[in-house]
Design a protein around this nucleic acid. Structure first.
Lengths: 219, 219
DNA sequence: GTGATACTGGACGCAGCCGTCCAGTAATTT
DNA sequence: AAATTACTGGACGGCTGCGTCCAGTATCAC
């Protein structure tokens, strides 16, 4: 389970080289299937077929189903990190930069891919703390850190009044998400559109700032 | 799947009557196993053994695994409803009654039982909207309604300033829970103790009330 | 008592799926 | 060219788990 998850390196040598496009195809297909049906319900045959690959190719790259699953999680985590790294809180109003972070966070956590991943991965990740940590760190934890940094600076400038920036960041993330986390996972709510994300991010950020406004004046 | 989920009625007639204690034992054992290992991983043999019951007894009461699962969900939903119904927002400060609701909500959603249920049930409930709705309605939706009612009254008395009580209730629930929902499901955080619940409920309610305070004065 | 039903414990058929093996073909190095 | 490795497609063993059946025993109504 904690092994390298990848087959023999084959870095350089004679013989036909590995088709790296196939690796990507496998991971994408596996993720899609894991998301749709859950890890237990997906057969290796189905993954191979969906990826347009022979079953032996699958097993030559990934020791078994669990190794494939682990690779999917790592793959997805890296994609999340890359996505969140693109979004930096650039200059602008405090509300503006926070709303930008919120937009990115919502777009990430509300995408069908991610809610499916979370739903499907939760049970499987539960007894694999290291992997779970990695997955979580790539998403919410990263956003929380960025938000906390912005809040800390704003507090230093006196724009807001906050004792514990990290906890306040948690509050803001919670407001952004609201109850959607649950409802999306249960399939009781459709994913948000871009405009809905935009509006929600803005509205909840506003509400958050009302709670942490400096004690003397109000908007 | 959508059938009665229960075996023949046997309401009254000759012959040995059903041992109703066994039904409860089955449901409890099944829930515990579903929570621990997820629906797919639990075998019917294991449920029968854990409940101290023959496999035939299992199948005589529940058509198949899915029917058993459905019964577990309904059973748990009813327990949640009963639990939340015990908690009414009795008189007291606005902050007090809200915090009381928060305490009940957190105690419910943070109990190992419930986080396990949510984790385990999410995937299984995803393609069973009616059942998912029922489960969700028994928990968060119920609390949200109660909170909204309290907020509406408080708004009418001018204690707070809120346009949409239901949405504000959603905000408050989100604050209470914070990021715990995710971290608990992933096993990255231990369930809260009673004192932690008490303190969190109080703190987050305070923060919420700051955001919705009437525009003229502050605490 | 008789008859009817619930429950047990083990055994079974059946299906699905994991992981492996093999012979043949494709791509690339030396 | 030869050698070496990647990939295919199908076939196979083995295991696990679902759902069923049966003979025997326990518990009820009449």
């Amino acid at each position: 389970m904690s092994a390298a998850a990848e087959g023999v390196a084959s870095g350089r040598g004679p013989g036909r080289p590995r088709d790296m496009a196939k690796r990507c195809a496998i991971l994408l297909a596996a993720r899609r299937l894991f998301i749709q049906q859950g890890m237990a319900a997906v057969t290796m045959e189905a993954v191979a077929a969906a990826a347009g690959v022979s079953k032996m190719t699958l097993y030559s790259r990934f020791r078994d189903k669990e190794a494939l699953f682990e690779a999917v999680v790592v793959f997805t985590s890296e994609a999340m990190i890359a996505e969140m790294s693109r979004t930096q809180a650039e200059g602008g109003t405090l509300a503006e930069s926070l709303a930008a972070l919120g937009r990115a966070f919502l777009a990430l956590t509300c995408s069908p891919d991610m809610i499916g991943a979370e739903r499907g991965l939760m049970m499987a990740l539960h007894d694999n703390p290291a992997l779970a940590e990695r997955f979580y760190a790539a998403g919410p934890a990263r956003t929380e850190g960025s938000v906390a940094a912005v809040l800390r600076q704003a507090a230093a400038r006196g724009e807001i009044q906050v004792d514990d920036p990290l906890e306040a960041a948690g509050d803001l993330l919670a407001l952004w998400q609201g109850g959607m986390c649950k409802r999306l996972s249960l399939g009781l709510q459709a994913p948000l559109s871009a405009e809905q994300i935009e509006q929600r991010s803005r509205a909840k950020t506003e509400m958050f700032l009302r709670a942490f406004a400096p004690s003397k004046a109000e908007a």
